[in-house]
Write a protein that binds this DNA or RNA. Structure first.
Length: 496
RNA sequence: GGCGCCAUAGCCAAGCGGUAAGGCAGAGGUCUGCAAAACCUCCACCCCCGGUUCAAAUCCGGGUGGCGCCUCCA
């Protein structure tokens, strides 16, 4: 059994082999901190969080680097609009990023470097690239010369000639008008470039922009160079995994690859991994369509773990369609799992018992089989469903105290093992269940005090064996979307 | 115009040559004062047409229909 990973570069699933035995060095492109994170970011970082967790479970010594890009055009624009210093804006968004990620169970990376803390390394790399003849200076800018790298566009599988042909075609796109062409001619904004695909390694500062001294005058890094510089600093010139969203394949990763090659003469990444996009109601998520959701907004309406569960229901490379209904479904599953875990823990507290190692080992092997197949979280979720069912099955076993406790302990351990990899079922059941209930009440515009009053009335009716009245109250609550569960230890209720 | 991805039950979604995981919904059942929850059972031959093979949802060719990237973007 071996781990297989899909490599964007070779377009195939390959047996995973590390450069150094037992060690994985991975770099995932982090966020540009000009705004709050959206659910697309959630998908990417949940995907790589699971990958990182699984690699560690597999016994690899993982070094995970995920950067913050804290200087770029959008940040400068946003800071000017808001009238706040760049550093204030970026600091604030980094804090927000950590809040969002913590909420959805994404662990911090081992190293989270900021671009502005690595300007000397970036300048040094640009110098090296210039010295090796793969870049040129023009008016305080430094551009990468794409024609100097024979392997350019190999990652994205394009051809230089096609790219140029495409640019002309796109300029005539339907939404273009003479006043505002769909595509700004590249030469208009960066007239000093020799080739349209050449890209800036270093940008001369315009008045009022953040700037650092350099051999080419005051300026700042271009978009792609930071990842080449920081990855090599923390992971070495060559490392195992490099990930990010599909959209980064071109130009970002293509350009990173070119720069790193130009600086070292080496292919710097062994395996390229890219996650698919989040669509909203089957359309691409975008601010102009009004279907743009931040993580913060979504987790106010749905429990953060529901979002995480939802994101794991589809393989990380496929597109996933975000709809309220899909997240609600996920939330119901999360609720089911935590109710089950809660009951199991209560039972094991009364009757402590060890699990059956033969069965838990077999379960681990099934998990490994699923996850070894390019981190197939959707297939792994089928195992979660199986563990949940086994657990409930054991919980409802009649008699046989010890036998029952062992069955419960065994199934609970299976669920725990799976949850540890997927980042599910790791929280306090009470809190999660309460969090889900509050959100469901809010979504349905229900008043908790009112419901609790009706539930109390019904309990009284049942005690008096006034079944007719009890049923009327049940119907009333049912009409509100509240379901009642009468059990030996009382009546519980929840929002459907 | 170039490059690429996808098409599996009412819905979502695994599957990567050996005879269709899982979830939701639905039907029946156990349990229950009635219910709910939970559990059990049932529920598809994989967009179309050719081809390769003993064997194809899975490979190849051709259609049809979605989508993405080529521009800031996870």
């Amino acid at each position: 059994m071996s781990l297989k990973v899909y490599n964007t570069f070779t377009r195939t699933k390959e047996p995973f082999e590390t450069i150094d035995p037992g060690k994985v060095r991975m770099y995932v492109c982090g966020v540009t901190v000009y705004d709050r994170c959206h659910i697309g970011h959630a998908r990417a970082y949940v995907a790589f969080d699971v990958i990182q967790r699984y690699l560690r479970w597999r016994g690899y010594d993982v070094t995970y680097v995920r950067n913050f890009t804290d200087v770029d055009d959008k940040i400068i624009k946003r800071s000017n609009e808001a009238g706040v210093p760049v550093s204030e804006l970026t600091d604030k968004n980094i804090v927000a990023f950590h809040e969002d990620m913590e909420a959805i169970g994404v662990a911090r990376a081992d190293i989270e470097p900021r671009v502005t803390d690595h300007i000397p390394q970036i300048v040094a790399m640009v110098q090296t690239i210039l010295q090796r003849g793969h870049a040129y200076e023009a008016g305080g800018d430094v551009y990468f010369d794409v024609t100097s790298f024979p392997g350019y566009l190999q990652l994205s599988g394009r051809k230089l000639d096609d790219m140029q042909a495409g640019a002309g075609e796109r300029a005539g796109a339907p939404d273009a008008t003479p006043e505002s062409p769909a595509v700004v001619p590249i030469d208009a904004t960066e007239p000093l470039k020799r080739h349209p695909l050449d890209f800036a390694l270093w940008k001369a500062a315009k008045p009022g922009e953040p700037a650092w001294d350099s051999p080419w005058g005051p300026g700042r890094p271009g978009w792609h160079i930071e990842c080449s510089a920081m990855s090599s600093q923390y992971l070495g010139e060559v490392f195992d995994l490099h990930g990010g969203g599909m959209d980064l394949i071109f130009p970002h990763h293509e350009n990173e690859r070119a720069q790193s090659w130009a600086a070292t003469g080496k292919e710097f990444v062994h395996t390229w991994m890219h996650n698919g996009f989040v669509n909203v109601d089957s359309e691409k998520m975008s601010k102009s369509l009004g279907n743009f959701f931040t993580i913060k907004d979504v987790i106010a309406r749905f429990h953060p773990e529901s979002l995480r569960y939802f994101l794991l229901t589809t393989h990380y490379r496929s597109p996933i369609n975000f709809t309220d209904g899909a997240v609600e479904d996920a939330e119901n599953r999360v609720e089911y799992l935590y109710e089950t875990v809660q009951a199991a823990r209560a039972l094991l507290e009364r009757t402590p018992c060890d699990s059956n190692p033969i069965e838990t080992e077999a379960a681990k092997e099934r998990m490994q089989l699923a996850m070894d197949d390019d981190f197939n979280s959707a297939a792994t979720l089928a195992l979660v469903a199986d563990a949940g069912r086994r657990l409930n099955d054991a919980l409802t076993m009649k008699g046989k105290g010890i036998q029952k406790a062992e069955a419960v302990a065994t199934a609970l351990e299976m669920l725990d093992d799976l949850g540890a990899i997927l980042g599910l079922c790791q929280r306090d059941p009470e809190e999660v269940l309460a969090g889900i209930r509050e959100r469901k009440l809010a979504r349905n515009g229900l008043d908790r005090a009112l419901i609790e009053g009706l539930v109390a009335d019904r309990i009284a009716a049942r005690v008096a064996k006034d079944w007719a009245k009890a049923d009327v109250l049940r119907a009333e609550l049912s009409g509100m979307g509240v379901v009642l569960m009468d059990g030996p230890e009382g009546t519980r209720w929840k929002v459907a």
